[in-house]
Design a protein around this nucleic acid. Structure first.
Lengths: 145, 145
DNA sequence: CATATTTAAGAGTATTAATTCTTAATTAAC
DNA sequence: GTTAATTAAGAATTAATACTCTTAAATATG
């Protein structure tokens, strides 16, 4: 059951690393993140580039450069990241792939699936990086192996 | 948001065609189904082969052969088809791809995601081909374009 | 038994997603 | 200004999924 692409998963995990590791400097280097989370440096760089282009991150080149959240972590919602990386049409899908499935021509599981998508969407809309970061810091959950 | 593979989507749609088109003969030919649903004959044949191997369908070769449900349609649940085609570990996933995410080491969205998966699973467990076929026949929803 | 119809099996190809690699641009520090 | 550290950009590769094609086997009918 692959709901999010690797791109989104890595992106979110990396942002959670940032918010749960209050750093000394203004910017966090991508190299540090990928070392800690054991991700591909080049792949995460590409993912972050997308988030920078979408205005979710700032980036800065050169020594002690890196990336930083463009907004306070309590104002960055999971939905922002998911839509930026998966596309704005992320929720426009029919579970069974019925051509033209919609309100006028619903597939046999349309209403059920609509409800599930609303649950997921509302959770992503109401969950900030800060909230998840706090959970990690409170050791209710773990970021690493 | 791709939750089911094309394999599962086509498989379920094709089975719904069968249950919503009470046929004259014992077997329905794959060619008829793919013509009506505009699917690839060879691809659906491969999908049905898997369902036949898993005991969900019977198949019969030769003139007026085809495939048939191995059980009454009210005893075939969506979950049976999904697990047969996606694998038994379909629900063993972490939304964010945290390595080792589980009860002892939950990721920051573990409990939320667990709940969603349970909702989906229970719906798939409680929905039979017959139920969806009835919806289609009652024209509450549509199978075709 | 010859022919037509149908599924079985799996090799082969194409498309998409994931990952890696190469080169360039920016910036700090000496 | 030279060097080192860092992200930017996107080409190139690999892997996974989706789809197509070929050949074989089974079966009904004349």
């Amino acid at each position: 059951m692959k709901v999010l692409s690797q791109t989104s998963k890595y992106g979110i995990r990396a942002l959670l690393y940032i918010v749960s590791n209050p750093s000394t400097g203004e910017y966090v280097s991508i190299g540090e993140i990928t070392k800690e989370l054991n991700l591909s440096f080049h792949f995460l760089t590409k993912i972050f580039r997308e988030l920078t282009n979408k205005g979710i991150l700032y980036s800065y080149r050169g020594p002690s450069g890196g990336i930083a959240l463009a907004k306070p972590s309590d104002q960055i919602m999971l939905i922002d990241i998911v839509l930026a990386l998966e596309g704005e049409d992320y929720f426009d899908n029919c579970l069974l792939g019925f051509p033209g499935c919609g309100v006028e021509k619903p597939c046999p599981v349309h209403n059920f699936w609509k409800g599930i998508k609303e649950d997921i969407k509302s959770h992503l809309c109401n969950t900030s990086l800060a909230q998840l970061g706090e959970k990690i810091l409170a050791e209710e959950v773990r970021l690493f192996d």
